[in-house]
Design a protein around this nucleic acid. Sequence first.
RNA 1: GGAGAGGUGCGUCGAACGGUAAGACACAGGUCUCGAAAACCUGAACCCAUUUUAUGGGCUUGUGGGUUCGAAUCCCACCCUCUCCGCCA
Length: 423
Amino acid sequence: MLDIKFIRENPDIVKEGCRKKQVKVDIDKILELDKKKREILKEVEKMRSEKNKASKEIVKLKGKEKKELLKKMREIDKEEDVLEKKLKETDKKFQALMAKVPNLPFDDVPVGKDERDNVVLREVGKIPKFDFKPKDHLEIGEALDIIDVKRAAKTSGTRFGFLKGKAVLLEFALVNFALETLIKENFVPVIPSVLIKEKPFWGMGYLDRGAEEVYFIPKDNLYLVGTAEQILGPMHMDEILKGKDLPKRYLGFSSCFRREAGSYGKDTRGIFRVHQFDKVEMFSFCKPEESIKEHLFFLKMEERLMKALEIPYRVVKICTGDLGDPAAAKFDIEAWLPGQGKFRETHSTSNCTDFQARRLNIRYRAKDGKLHFVHTVNGTAFAIGRIIIAILENYQEKDGSVRIPKALQKYMGISKIKSQKSK
RNA sequence: GGAGAGGUGCGUCGAACGGUAAGACACAGGUCUCGAAAACCUGAACCCAUUUUAUGGGCUUGUGGGUUCGAAUCCCACCCUCUCCGCCA
């Protein structure tokens, strides 16, 4: 949510931002409704003021005078009713449009239409060379009997997968590694609930567009989160945080649920794009003047994790058209996947400035004693399924075995997942 | 799922026969002081307007409706918390 005052004063900047983000919202209509709303509000408040004064009088008056005032008040009441209704209707229309205005991109975000206009900032690590044709994660995983999509299809349908055996150990090794690395940086680990009520969920800004991506349980009126971010933010809904506690960092581990509605036919092989996966997610509430720094810090942490795993990757700056509604700036990390011969997204970090905080009403008291909205920053530590894919494909050997990255060996207790052939 | 209790100002506690939200503690600033404590004073959501930093008005007792000239108080629905019972990983 943007500040209506900002829209009033800078309608052209807002329109430009919407245009850059490829989002169509009628800003002029918003301003018109805002004006109308304030006009009605003025009238209503005048009546309320009169009523308040009269109420005080009524107590003192007696007999005929009292009767007359009561009669007059009844009439004002009727008028007020009509106006109040009008005010509510106007406000409803106003709010509905306001909710559709996306956060504005920073000036340094590359302008573009879609992911093809994203800008690669740098490539890190050496792309491995194989003296055999590298296999993809599903082939490797099935041969090692650590990934099972066939049985998952039987129990749950397409786009599901079971991790088994060593893949499970790998998952927990990754979780432990992320925890150990990031707790040192003042992240508080959290295992949140994955079911969430509508209002807090709405506050994160993913419901107004892209609602078809979300699982919803009508019987209980609950949504399934698509990432821990969506519930770590609302954790502090309607709270006033202490300035000295910022930045307040959380590290959420949760299952994530996505309908993948718009991706029919895309990435159907294996567990690359599934309806359910586990993820370790970073989230921070910080002061407005610190969010750019915090965002870069998140990117640094993501790179630190990837470097430690020694998986080649590249850093991509996301263009305006590919930013989500809540984000003002976003970086992705794409890992090299030898099985696909491509870089594919494994991490994403966004600075959502005060967009989510305003919807969720999360503020902090500054030194001057005044209240300000905090800024929120989120970022992936590990999307576990995809990191497992990256490890399997980058660390595969000719006989189908997979080496374990050094950083994970102490958590796994082994240095290799051996294929049956090598035994 | 059944029965009961409750939700009051950024925090903690806590009052208000249907008459327009006391008070205490905490917090911030100030006076005092060499400094601190104590004491005293002031302030504190949000919205609208303007002679734009101050003043006026509105709103605010979990949320939304209703009754009423007037609702924290009465009625209805919903949300949340707690206690007991049942079920249960």
